[in-house]
Design a protein around this nucleic acid. Structure first.
Lengths: 281, 281
DNA sequence: TGGCGTCATACCCCTGCGGTATCGACCCGC
DNA sequence: GCGGGTCGATACCGCAGGGGTATGACGCCA
């Protein structure tokens, strides 16, 4: 199977529509139809069921979509890391990715400590939207990432645990619940005048619901202060809070674990150094 | 980058020789030379240094070899799992791979317990040479594997720990050391009349050394009985021992952990059932 | 220095990918 | 029930590029 075929397949699977997929790929519709038919013939598997409304995946197709995305990411990673290895000459900057606006204190400590190490290489910090860190690590755009259990998918990475925290609810100061000594997730989710905000999926779309659509943390804290929403955050978020906000511990929310993650078999000395420094914090 | 290019590159890297690689690939030498040159141009990276003796990898080339092999395994896995998904219809047999001759007691218990579960699917057991289990899991030839820390490379897999054991030295009954109550690895390795056996690498070649070349466990036990070698094994190997063999605990050998491993994001109900059963043993 | 081994280049052929035009099937509104 | 608007599939053509053979350039060794 060639990566071109996989890319074509993934495009059609994602669009559920040959015409749109062809447009996205920059080719005409007929060759794409033909390529998919040929792929199905070669695999001996029906990948789509054709309907008058477009194409829907069969279960074999779903397998190929899942596995094929991982395979494409691996190929892209190989290409990117090779490109970077050439620029490298051994002392290329390490690309570290983290969630914008999270773990800033920990990150600052880590970067300072690492920079003080003998032989430290430059660290490019790439702040990306929530959930994108793992993707960037998988496709080679980043060398190392700060991720959060249980939110990020850590499968396939080597990780070192850095921090375990309880979660708290941040709500407007003066709200009736703000004087509670502790709340459950159930209670926090069902306050009618404080709907929890909605975060975008990986593709940029938003789940349905009553809460505001949000992209970053400063936004949400402002809205909390205005009494429009409340939010569950790891305990370390307290450090960044200003006036107008109240904090209530959540008794039954899952603990949040902050980890540093890197692709298995990484040979970058920069990654090794960062990880070593991180585990000593 | 197309998988064809990657396959060509890996062949040349492994053979260090365009002609031999071309033969292995079933094409002529000139197109292969051209393909490599084109790949280097497109990546903007020198992958090989040309010598009159052949091609040797640059450091960028080593990066691409490592990453490229993983990528190719991922593509092959996608293809195999899709092929198997079509035959599937939901109740395809699960392929479990394990080291020939190891963990047989544990495996028997696992297979029996799983077969007794409601809704259990068939399990194809593939016994493969030491070290091949992880490869089979990576390229989709197997769905789940029994692996051993620290010998197997578990990176990139989800695992559940099944068993932790100390290691012991197996030597001929009556050997002077057989009456020792405990030995160090150092001591066990330096007995002049009992050189430790050599196991094949993944490519089938053997490391240099004085000990006998071996492929499987019954062979080695026979040679131990004949006083030609000794071997370090996990404690559970005692169960299979017959007369003529002595066992001495090793005080400083690393513990051996037996795990059940599967590819992340596996959706196979058979794998899930096996893992669930295994963790309850 | 000639012979042998390496990989690179030159040139040709033909497969197979992508393009345009068109078809067949289905859904919908009237 | 019939035309128009969706789909994806098919037919056909042109050409880029991958693969073939023949040969060259270069370093090593006897």
């Amino acid at each position: 199977m060639e990566t071109r075929e996989l890319r074509y397949f993934v495009a059609v699977a994602e669009e559920s529509h040959v015409g749109r997929a062809a447009e996205r790929l920059g080719i005409a519709q007929p060759p794409l139809s033909r390529a998919i038919a040929q792929l199905e013939r070669r695999l001996g598997a029906q990948l789509f069921t054709r309907t008058p409304q477009g194409m829907t995946l069969t279960s074999a197709g779903e397998t190929l979509l899942r596995e094929g995305r991982a395979a494409l990411a691996a190929v892209e990673a190989a290409e990117r890391r090779t490109r970077r290895a050439v620029a490298a000459a051994g002392r290329a900057p390490v690309v570290l990715t983290a969630k914008a606006g999270a773990s800033s204190e920990l990150m600052a400590k880590l970067l300072d400590a690492y920079a003080a190490e003998p032989g430290a290489v430059d660290v490019d910090v790439v702040l990306s939207p929530p959930g994108h860190q793992a993707l960037m690590l998988r496709d080679g755009r980043a060398d190392v990432a700060i991720l959060h259990r249980p939110f990020d998918d850590l499968s396939g990475f080597d990780v070192e645990q850095l921090l375990v925290e309880e979660q708290v609810l941040i709500l407007p100061a003066g709200h009736p619940l703000s004087s509670a000594t502790s709340l459950t997730v159930e209670e926090a989710s069902s306050v009618p005048d404080l709907p929890l905000p909605r975060w975008p999926h990986l593709d940029g779309s938003y789940p349905d619901g009553p809460g505001p659509e949000l992209r970053d943390l400063t936004q949400v804290l402002q809205l909390v202060r205005l009494g429009r929403t409340a939010i569950m955050l790891p305990d370390s978020a307290r450090a960044n809070l200003r006036d107008g906000l109240a904090v209530v511990p959540l008794s039954d929310a899952p603990q949040v674990t902050t980890v540093i993650a890197w692709p298995p078999h990484s040979t970058s000395p920069g990654v090794a150094g960062l990880v070593r420094t991180a585990t000593r914090l």
